[in-house]
Design a protein around this nucleic acid. Structure first.
Lengths: 333, 333
DNA sequence: TTGAAAGCGCTAACAT
DNA sequence: ATGTTAGCGCTTTCAA
């Protein structure tokens, strides 16, 4: 059972202020006598003391917490992002509250409200739709807000995301060069800003190579899952009558599905299939194919996002700044 | 700027209690007149109201938060576990605070202290060593504690973990049956209870088949990473002079490393290599090999862990109960 | 039906 | 160098 400052002060016959000053390490600053210092320190050493954060928060109107709101915490990208954020928070004495929204705008709103009610000082959000500013401005005077991963056009918050257009352009170029012709792009969840950007990059690189009918090579599905990948591959094979020479996928999940379908149709994974995919995983090594993968830099994304919230928490005004982080393209085989 | 109950009460000329009762939905119960109800409701509808959690916590000595402390939040197993925990918490109006300990006992202690100081009602911990009971008992009268994934012998907390012995035994049996002989087991981080259990299962199944020198087939490393897998594979090949016919790995990371090494030594991944591994991933489909993988049931692990903290939060005494969740073994090719 | 008051543990401003 | 006090927003108890 932790003692309170007041209890300590009465039990050793010293004022509350004195105890507090010593516990908070401001003894020198206020020239507390060595005697009193020792008294308090010894008491704490034997009986212990734990700061009561709720009480402090009530007084300070500050909780030293940051909320992290993303569609799915189990998604490897967000999980890595979150782990990096947590490191930053920890180094500054902040703790991270996290929640999944399951890509449900309703739930997202409730989650943000809940975090606001808990007085988070900062909020990192990967929003599942164009963010509602009213919600944030209305409720609390000053919460630091940063948007990540999903850069909805015209949103008014600082936003940190990967360079989806650029990396998609580079990836597409590479593949077209290797294949010597157009590449099929399987992409899911086309309403997402990141996916739209990737399609833009794809079209730019395709046009560069004189592929004016690039739209014919974009195959899109509504959900980012392996099933989407399977469906897209099946449809493509049925329409064309043969398997593609080169595919590019907007996520590893889609790639998994596409490969599974190919394996079940043709009996094996043709090792002359050229592959390109967003996101990377060590197990891509398991394929003998030529394969390019786009590596997002979660550490850097998290660093920038954290810097921005921290600056806002220290009083800086939040500019609707776009921060775009380059991606690395890894080649295998 | 959110109004407080007090502000609302003075602004519409009603007492604090009345406002609170209405806001908390207890109007009927205390027969607040329709008139007053409407008054307050209208006010809230236009001006809004957000509960101040810190204030409530201070009074109630309860924060409606649960701490989640694991070695690495980015680890897919813990990430899935966490996502499941968060769902449970959300459904009960609790929020999850999460932190990585990086397998550092020092940091683990600090993290737990921090969470305790923030008054978490519950604590889910995947401890990186035999848990220190003093810490928890001393600091706060009643925190609900549940240990997960790592079942240190003689710990006194309720513990939820996968059936590592059983699944390892089953996996080893299967492989021995398929291969018709002993299997090499690459395992990292042998000080971990889960790994020790897996080795136990391995030895049991080996002995069943008359492999009395099973220890010769256990190759262990200190760290759970791809590098460990590479080293173990290299050593094995150098010692034996040829590659193993069948390997079993204690994690996907180790498997990745082992395969990478094989690929770089022999030039390709021999497709007659029998593989068994703990943990599962869709990309295992990319290998043409016969491969067994052990699927841990994060949802069920999280459910049981959550039930236990919740019961404790409601006053139940924490029995040092062991809960062991069976794993599924998936076969490919 | 509604109101008043005390107090949770902390901090900051103001005394000494 | 140390003490006193008010108050953060909420809940609970008691009163009217």
């Amino acid at each position: 059972m932790p003692k309170t400052i007041k209890e300590i002060s009465t039990e050793i016959g010293v004022s509350i202020t004195t105890v507090r000053l010593i516990i908070n390490g401001q003894a020198e600053k206020y020239r507390i006598s060595q005697k009193t210092q020792k008294l308090v320190e010894d008491y704490v050493a034997t009986h212990g003391y734990v700061l009561h954060h709720a009480a402090r928060s009530l007084k300070l109107e500050r909780t030293d917490t940051v909320g992290f709101v993303v569609p799915d915490l189990a998604n490897p990208f967000f999980a890595r992002f979150m782990a990096a954020m947590e490191r930053h928070c920890r180094s500054q004495g902040l703790v991270l509250l996290s929640a999944s929204t399951n890509d449900d705008p309703e739930l997202e709103t409730r989650t943000i409200d809940n975090f606001l009610s808990r007085g988070v000082d900062g909020l990192i959000i990967a929003p599942c739709r164009m963010p509602a500013h009213k919600q944030l401005f209305a409720k609390k005077s000053k919460v630091a807000v940063v948007l990540v991963d999903r850069d909805y056009p015209q949103n008014r918050y600082p936003t940190v995301s990967s360079d989806n257009v650029g990396s998609s352009r580079a990836l597409t170029r590479q593949m077209i060069a290797d294949v010597g012709g157009p590449v099929d792009f399987f992409c899911a969840y086309t309403t997402l800003p990141s996916i739209r950007d990737r399609i833009n990059g794809f079209s730019e690189a395709s046009l560069e190579s004189g592929i004016t009918d690039w739209e014919r090579y974009v195959h899109s599905a509504m959900e980012d899952c392996a099933t989407s990948g399977r469906h897209l591959m099946r449809e493509l094979i049925e329409t064309r009558g043969n398997r593609p020479r080169a595919i590019m996928t907007s996520s590893l999940l889609v790639l998994e599905g596409a490969i599974q379908e190919l394996k079940s149709v043709t009996g094996n994974i043709p090792n002359d299939l050229f592959i390109g995919t967003f996101d990377d995983h060590a197990m891509l090594d398991f394929l003998p194919n030529r394969i390019y993968s786009v590596v997002q830099d979660e550490d850097r994304l998290a660093s920038l996002a954290f810097e921005s919230v921290q600056a806002q928490m220290k009083g800086a005004v939040a500019e609707p700044l776009r921060m775009t982080i380059p991606c690395q393209i890894v080649r295998r085989n």
